[in-house]
């Protein structure tokens, strides 16, 4: 099996270390003013104007059922390409782009239950911490019930 190193764009969410495939990331931008969408699922934080394009911003903390972000902390936007156009993930802090090898990869752990378990593709066992890999497509899909 050809072992190819993969690159991930990493970010922090409630002290957890997450990553998405760097090839899926269109850009990373600082906090943008947002338009609140009434009647929308709670995960939808609002709409941002990305150079004339309207992009839906999702609060990843809510999506992953983590605790709410403190009011004084402004999130960052990780804009990810999806089939339905770009979607922005709101995260706490942006990390580096890391390159990891397949040998330290662990498929999804069954012990992570519920929504987070479905959204996490797998885990890289880095030396000092764990890198949780987010399935961007699943994360960007929000059912009406949410």
């Amino acid at each position: 099996m050809a072992e190819r190193a993969r690159q991930y764009c990493t970010f922090l969410l409630d002290e957890h270390y997450f990553g998405v495939d760097v090839l899926r990331v269109q850009e990373v931008i600082r906090y943008q003013q947002m338009t609140h969408v009434p009647l929308a699922p709670a995960v939808v934080e609002g709409l941002i104007n990305l150079r004339g394009q309207i992009v839906t911003a999702l609060d990843l903390r809510r999506r992953l059922e983590l605790s709410e972000r403190p009011d004084d902390q402004l999130p960052m936007n990780v804009v990810v390409r999806t089939d339905d156009g770009p979607v922005s993930f709101l995260v706490d802090e942006i990390g580096d782009v890391v390159e990891v090898g397949d040998e330290i990869f662990e498929r999804r752990l069954d012990t992570i239950r519920g929504v987070p378990g479905e959204l996490i593709e797998g885990i890289y066992k880095l030396e000092d911490r764990l890198l949780l890999i987010l399935d961007a497509d699943k994360a960007a899909e929000v059912s009406r019930a949410d």
Binding site: V37, P38, L39, A40, P41, V44, I54, V55, T56, L58, D84, G85, V87, A140, V142, R144
Partner: peptide, 11 residues
């Protein structure tokens, strides 16, 4: 509107 919001018939 994106897929996430299309179902909101008020918009």
């Amino acid at each position: 509107l994106g897929k996430l919001l299309k179902h909101i018939s008020s918009f």
